[in-house]
């Protein structure tokens, strides 16, 4: 890891100024759980590291009944996972947060950092001149691609590694981005970038822009949610496939529902075709199978990752059964 200058801005504007002035050689830094890996492995060698933790006011969780939950970008994963309101009302989020990495990393890693972490594709992380690093080819395409995407890939076949992203997508989260003097709030679905838009980035953040908070609209009464993360090791592993779901029911009716997937695409993945099937639908014995069969209909697997399709379907069955039965 190259040495750098560690800057301690006191405001978002000051941080943005440092980042902008760095012209691509400065990075924003919060928990550092991923940035340090990138720096130690010489994937990035910033001259200036801008510590966002020195900016006050970015690490609180505020809940207003009927409106929603605002979570500062610097809230740690463990504080999120253990927050009583999150545990009580947004189970999908506490479950997703709990499933991340290890206790020690959750104590340090932040919500903003988790959303902005870089992919774990070995060809990206190791010594390959891969497309995402400005190289010429995707080595995963005809390489070891057991853990790569089955949908949404083109030219590059990463999966997005964030568990929170999948959960937040289900929750219709809005993400606040400080850009110069302004703060823009956009739907989280618009935050992530597919490779065919730009294969060198996973999100829309421009130089000098910082994620400051996220906002989750409150869930109506009768809503249940869950997150199932499937990984090869019992704990401390990235998702092979994960599924998050939120379902509002009334009696034997589903009022509405949303499902999203992690580990299947270069971005957290949801399908409106599938979600529309979960509007005003009577709960019956076939529903889990039917929905599961309808997911990822455009999936196109690589040589080694075809198993992710039945895996995602089975997890869909499991989560719907768990929420509805």
């Amino acid at each position: 890891m190259k040495n750098f200058e560690y800057l301690q801005p006191k405001s978002i504007a000051e941080a943005a100024g440092y980042l902008k002035a760095g012209n691509g050689t400065s990075i924003p830094y919060s928990g550092g759980t991923d940035a340090l890996v990138m720096m130690k492995d010489n994937l990035i060698s910033p001259k200036k590291v801008v510590n966002l933790k020195s900016i006050p006011g970015l690490n609180s969780i505020d809940y207003i009944r009927g409106e929603g939950l605002k979570i500062g970008a610097l809230v740690t994963i463990s504080d999120l996972a253990e927050h009583p309101v999150v545990k009580d009302k947004f189970k999908i989020l506490s479950e997703a947060a709990e499933s991340i990495a290890s206790p020690q990393l959750r104590n340090v890693g932040t919500v903003g950092g988790n959303l902005c972490q870089r992919p774990r594709c070995a060809y990206f992380r190791e010594d390959f001149d891969c497309l995402r690093k400005g190289g010429n080819a995707c080595y995963a395409f005809d390489g070891e691609n057991k853990l790569h995407c089955i949908i949404g890939g083109s030219l590059c076949y990463i999966v997005h590694p964030s568990d929170l992203a999948t959960a937040l997508l289900v929750l219709n989260t809005k993400i606040s981005i400080a850009s110069g003097e302004k703060i823009n709030e956009i739907p989280i679905a618009d935050f992530f970038v597919l490779p065919d838009e730009d294969f060198t980035r996973e999100n829309i953040l421009q130089s000098g822009e910082i994620v400051t908070s996220i906002f989750i609209p409150d869930l109506p009464e009768g809503t249940k949610s869950s997150y199932i993360k499937f990984r090869e090791r019992a704990v401390w592993d990235f998702a092979v496939v994960s599924v998050g779901a939120v379902i509002q029911t009334s009696g034997s009716e589903i009022v509405s529902g949303r499902i999203a997937f992690g580990g299947v695409a270069p971005i957290p993945w949801t399908e409106s075709v599938v979600n529309s099937k979960l509007i005003n639908r009577t709960i019956d014995a076939h529903i889990a199978d039917e929905i599961a069969e309808s997911i990822l209909s455009n999936a196109d697997s690589l040589e080694m990752n075809g198993y992710k399709i039945p895996l995602a379907k089975n997890l869909t069955k499991r989560i719907l059964t768990q929420l509805l039965m």
């Binding site: 070995a122 992380r125 190791e126 010594d127 390959f128 080595y139 390489g143 070891e144 990235f238």
Partner: peptide, 15 residues
Amino acid sequence: KVDSNTGKVLTANLY
């Protein structure tokens, strides 16, 4: 795991 196209190891870490 070794990438057979390049002869490079893909798993040189504990994650």
